[in-house]
Design a protein around this nucleic acid. Structure first.
Lengths: 190, 190
DNA sequence: AAAAATATTGAATGTAAATTCAATGAACAA
DNA sequence: TTGTTCATTGAATTTACATTCAATATTTTT
């Protein structure tokens, strides 16, 4: 691949990153193509040289979000609590390292929830189904006695909503920092 | 006040409620005046007879949200934990009773956070400063030994973000229900 | 260096949505 | 009943964007 292609790919990434920022801070609808263009110092016309439409840009971001869902952690953990702790610590760790992660979280949540999301994009976003992934772990932990009693799906939901709320805040106001993973894990601890 | 006025006020409320729903599910920007009009079965033109602009409608909702911040609970509680528990239980209780409460939460959070919010509206929204309200309670609880150690502001933030995340989910997907207040209070429990 | 390909721009163009308005209908007061 | 006021509509008007395009510069290839 020639240097020209690399340059172009590089530029695409810059645009995607700028768009992610804007979509998360202003919302998809409120973000103008001209905002994105300005934010990467290029003319509006040129932006259409890189992406055929605002929606395609959005779609590509959501696809990226879907692929980036392979979180480490959550693999070789002894008990359920360790599993939650590892997951949360790793997530917070990555969020601090790479600010786009928290933003991606928000983007995906919006894409899933917002009634304004084009259907085919929503479908892509809905492939990430984190809430249900935690259910079996919770059930195991409840047998062990390390996770509190209660409906596993509801517990998973509570935990996940909290993570979402934190990510949402951090994406927009990183200066407030992130809580200790332990605090959040205590939502499910028995 | 004549019956005419009451009718008009009634209609305004309907519009406000419909707009709240749409702003929360689709976002302010993505919501068309025609969406709101349709949702209350009135012509677009007539809607402007009730509200001079989409933005004024938004502003009025944010004002309502600001006034509705006088939560009961959080008053006569013995210790810090009881204070958090009462607050959370009451909040969840009201959310179940009156669905607009969770939605109002989301609206206010968006108004505060979104870079697209008109400044004068953001200023109104920012008058609600819940995070800091919990700080003294946390400090007291830490002396009592009932609240876990750690930066009070950060703890308050963690608690509040979780509440936000839960409200956000509940506003859009109430069928999932709300968690037990205790689970969330355990974020700060010592 | 000439030609080809690609990058970039700024100015159209088209469209969808907000806002205005003139006209009509319904309730109300005299 | 008749004039007045308010409710309501649908059709302009205006505005704000997304998207397209023709023209120009820059880089690459031959």
């Amino acid at each position: 691949m020639g240097v020209r292609q690399e340059q172009k790919e590089q530029r695409r990434q810059e645009i995607l990153y700028a768009a992610l920022n804007l979509f998360v801070t202003k919302g998809y609808s409120a973000t103008k193509i001209s905002d994105i263009a300005e934010s990467v110092s290029m003319s509006v016309g040129l932006l259409f040289h890189y992406f055929e439409s605002k929606e395609k840009l959005y779609e590509e971001l959501v696809r990226m979000g879907l692929e980036g869902t392979n979180f480490p952690g959550a693999q070789k953990c002894e008990g359920a609590i360790e599993c939650f702790t590892q997951f949360t610590e790793q997530l917070f760790f990555f969020m601090k390292k790479q600010p786009y992660i928290a933003k991606m979280f928000v983007l995906m949540a919006n894409a899933q929830r917002s009634a304004g999301t084009p259907v085919h994009i929503r479908e892509i976003a809905l492939k990430v189904n984190t809430i249900e992934q935690f259910v079996p772990i919770i059930e195991a932990g409840q047998k062990e006695g390390t996770i509190r009693q209660g409906d596993p799906l509801s517990l998973s939901n509570a935990f996940w909503c909290s993570i979402q709320g934190i990510a949402e805040q951090y994406a927009v106001h990183p200066e407030m920092g992130l809580p200790k993973a332990e605090w959040i894990v205590d939502i499910v601890r028995g």
